[in-house]
Amino acid sequence: MNTLKIIKYQLQDVIRSRWIIFYTLFFWLITDALFRFGGSGEHVILSLMNVVLIVIPLVSIVLGAMYLYNSREYIELLLSQPITRSSLFSGLYAGLTIPLASGFALGILVPFAYHGGLTSEAAAGVLFLVFVGILLTVVFTALAFSIALRFEDKIKGLGLSLVLWLFFAVIYDGLILFIIFLFSYYPLQNPVIALTMLNPVDLARILLMLNFDISALMGFTGAVFQRFFGSGFGMAVSLGVMLLWLAIPLSVAFRVFLRKDF
């Protein structure tokens, strides 16, 4: 019960804040512009995919950490009320992820709707894109929560959030390429699939690529990926791993929150 009340007031607060408006407008303008530059629904989705994969993890992890650091005194005040720590935690988490996810979904779906993209064949594609974007949002806000609760120092926590984003979004792919180059004489398909699973951004990228049937662009590995991820089993495994990426950081954050001194 109290969780819902906390969510209600968090939403009232967040919806009026500037950053969520900017975030929504950002996706709105980009989607609108891509349509105006003559893209069809499918082309727009492909272009948006790269934006989603870079921007959502970055914004979710940085804003998530900032949100917790800024709510510090507010959390103290709420904890002096007859509220359990678990309901406050769920209230805070939902109070951030709901506006972030809806801002993103709105920013993409509304321009799609008025450009007629939702009635075409691209409708399923854009819905899948929104789904993956929401998954990335909840995963990276959970990571942000576990970092911000673990590190008392705001600068340290924000720095670590940025480094983690950089690692997953940029460095990780470089490392995989380096491994492929280093062991180019060995059959690497399976290890590479395993490594891909360990990065939520890569996982999201592959889910999207397979869904849009552009894995051929990835050459030989693409075919291997197609065989694994394209199967029902592969899809289930990758979604399962993605959910682990949500569950593990979130439960770490939750446990820290229960024991933390405010």
Partner: peptide
């Protein structure tokens, strides 16, 4: 770890901060 006992407690901290975009009435 219980919370009900705080029903009988009022607390005014050194520095108070509420969600910035809520009005005092809210």
């Amino acid at each position: 770890g219980n919370s009900e006992y705080r029903r009988d407690i009022g607390y005014m901290p050194q520095t108070a901060r509420y969600p910035e975009n809520l009005t005092v009435q809210e």
